[in-house]
Design a protein around this nucleic acid. Structure first.
Lengths: 159, 159
DNA sequence: AATGAAATGAGAGCGCG
DNA sequence: CGCGCTCTCATTTCATT
């Protein structure tokens, strides 16, 4: 189940710290402190607090997919036949389980799911569509958009 | 301009290290070393090498948008009128410049751009559409998909 | 109650064999 | 590549406002 998520109030110091950590979480606390006019321990306490509260969900290295032999990014809009809770949950679980599926969102509008997929070759993508879409009786239709340019990539939140 | 990107060969050790860093880049090198059967300095050298080569594009904190007052994630498919290089570049620049635009991809298929947008309220999104889409003569059409559930989120590359 | 200054300890960074 | 050292930085303690 989901971890505890205490509601937490963030002041302008916290937001300033987040702004820096979103760009580079290896920034020394001392440097952050200088930037926001706070001592290093104060910065440390705030970071820890935000990590425990789930404001900072993760600290991770961003890998360039092209550099590790996965140069193709694809968006897929998926429309399902039946939208019962059970079938939707099943679809969520199945899509999420695939490592090639980088992001999966359940959405309103003309589609039900939007997936972001990263693969090495189009043949891999084709194989994936067989498994994920043609192999799923509840998938009515899907539309594929192949990325020609990753113009802006990130999970940065506007602050 | 883009930084130098020397081609680099990655062995199974490098991939194993990346796999760990993608989940948590604060993992001590010693711990990584134990996991992949390598000494800490060896791990360090490999990480440094991959950072310099651009394999590791960034190290950053992932912020939960809902926790910082930006609970709404929206996908937008944008179709443009003219696809001349100049107009496409202009659109890329304009979309990228908006802080609410978290991701922007130039794609093939029935749309030209796919944007991932993070905002606090639907009113904010409406204001953004006015600026970005209605205020751009080259935007023919756009379709909005509001995320109801962020089923799987991340920039993790399959390794 | 949260901060800043100083002391402690862990981990990163480098040269060595 | 692994072992050792050094040094920076993260972390804790404590006095202060």
């Amino acid at each position: 189940m989901a971890k505890t998520r205490p509601e937490i109030a963030l002041d302008s110091f916290d937001l300033a710290i987040l702004k820096i950590l979103q760009k580079d979480n290896a920034t020394p606390q001392r440097t952050i402190g200088e930037a926001v006019n706070l001592s290093a321990p104060a910065v440390q306490r705030r970071i820890k607090r935000m990590e425990e509260a789930g404001v900072i969900a993760a600290n991770c290295a961003i890998v360039d997919p092209a550099r590790v032999g996965q140069p193709i990014t694809i968006f897929v809009e998926v429309e399902v036949i039946s939208e019962t809770a059970e079938l939707i949950d099943a679809a969520k679980a199945e899509f999420s389980a695939a490592p090639e599926v980088q992001q999966c969102y359940y959405v309103t509008g003309e589609a039900d799911f939007i997936l972001v997929i990263v693969v090495a070759t189009m043949a891999d993508y084709e194989a994936l569509t067989r498994r994920l879409f043609f192999g799923n009786n509840n998938v009515k239709r899907f539309r594929t958009f192949v990325a020609m340019d990753r113009v802006k990539v990130g999970l940065t939140v506007p602050l």
